[in-house]
Amino acid sequence: MIKIKNLHAEIEGNKILNGVNLEINAGEIHAIMGPNGSGKSTLASVLAGREEYEVTRGEVELMGENLLDLEPNERAAAGVFLAFQYPVEIPGVSNMNFLKTALKSIKEFKGEKPYTAKEFLQMVKKNQELVGLSGRLANRSVNEGFSGGEKKRNEIFQMAMLDPKFAILDETDSGLDIDALKTVADGVNQLKSPEKSFLLITHYQRLLDYIVPDFVHVLHKGQIVKTGPKELALELEEKGYDWLKEDGVEA
């Protein structure tokens, strides 16, 4: 599904990613853990196409296509989805209008027929239920006045609507109470399929109790320093990240 090879990226001259190598096959769920400042969110941003980050070396292939050449909207059309750590509030833009336009663009990009109004509404209804997002919120401006949990639910709702092939969840668990966390995890688990891949970025092991990863990677100083099965997450929870501090740098 996705192949990340020797990826280096920087922002304003600060090197953040220093050669990330990662391959995720279709149907797999990978988790990236690591201390603050290790480059987790940068990796998510670079994959989604955030402009501020400059890729200085390396490549990323999504199903054989060079992802780094694509604009963020083209990446979305190719099947990449990023659930934001901090979803943006956009006053005056209705959630529905935005999703309708986004879906239309994606369909257009793929040369497919747009959904009919009826199909769209059916999808909205189904996916709202999936993530427990009330219709009242769906009709408001994008994320405006939403609580932290509502914003995260809205991210998963959008993910369900856009039906991506490769979804990155950037600290989706942060700021969620246990009920919201379960709902979000349920949503992800129901969307899971042999054709889809997920990359979970998280600081804590907690999310991985509900979404079970196939592999866990530890990111440190912009590199993957350890990879293991799901049990690695538990080990990290126990040991923390102190063992990474071999050179005395605050982790």
Binding site: G49, N73, V93, V142, Q158
Partner: peptide, 14 residues
């Protein structure tokens, strides 16, 4: 708002 622009584009909007 660049952040809003990126958000919208990341969802597939031109």
């Amino acid at each position: 708002d660049e952040e809003a622009l990126f958000y919208l584009m990341s969802r597939g909007m031109k």
